[in-house]
Amino acid sequence: MSELTLTGALGLAYWAETSIKLGVALVVIPTAALMLGYLFLLKMMAFMQSRLGPQDVGPSGSLQLIADAIKFLQKEDIHPAAADRRVFRAAPVVVLASSFLLFVVLPTGPDAVVENLDTGVFYALAVSSLSVLGVLMAGWASASKYALLGGLRAAGQLIAYELPLILAVMGVVIQANSLNLQEIVRAQATGEIFGFGFVGNPFILTQFIGFLIFMISAQAELTQTPFDMPVAETELVGGFHVEYTGFRFLLFFMAEVATTFAFSALATVLFLGGWWIPGFDFDAPILNVLGPMVMLAKILLVAFVIFWIRFTYPRLREDQLQKFAWKVLIPLSLANIVVTGIFKVVL
């Protein structure tokens, strides 16, 4: 995303800068989805299960997902006869919009961010909660009991795990003194560990419990195994998107993978030091080029862990999932906030 600095240097008008940023974001999002989908969902899962994965389309099957997308676009756009057509059509767009809006605040360099909002992390959590709406719309409008059950399960799960997710972020916000994602990166870059400041202070060290809660809740928010009851094939056929075909199914798929990418990026910014590289000035212009690369490496690392868990664990039962959220994660994250607050005041 190095173009973004150029616009600042060239002194472009607001509309020109905005449209360039929008263009970059619109390229980055599907690319991110393709990359994660190919690397982890197809190839890594195959290797973990002693298979080869896709082989035929492109080198090592790397164009498989593009071929799949073209196939999806050619399919007939089927609506169930009893479906509520308008809501049925709008649902995947709502889910995808929630995922697109997440990318707006993710910083990848000192200037390489679409919009550096004052309330960055709060905004990200707010727009990520919009996807529940699309999932409920899809489940209801399909006029199928499996889809409705899947939608209701998804909504119950997303509501339950949104709370620990937000509460886990609170610890970071208290420590960084800001909701702004750039300021959170700065706090980690300029922080010190026992007077040793070369690598800064990535919040994974001081907020390790917060990081664990965040990753578990993100896994549930993304409905990845072991929290994939909303799309459990053995019980619900396919969950809330069982009635969707062709490009509308493609939209759901893309939103799922793109949201995984965005949540990995959020975890990177909040806990792993973001785009900053030890040894550089925080505002060094070169970081607008190197920052996105470092971010990408860290995002792939976090996403690897998310998919690794997904391919490894069996799914929980519905009551176990709710109990785990309300009786373990939420009290733990509240305790984390209290401890962080005490340390903040004392130190």
């Binding site: 909660s129 709406l133 409920l136 489940g139 209801w140 209701l152 119950g156 509501i159």
Partner: peptide
């Protein structure tokens, strides 16, 4: 979301 959840 809770409204819709309850209605559905």
């Amino acid at each position: 979301v809770l409204f819709l959840f309850g209605i559905m």
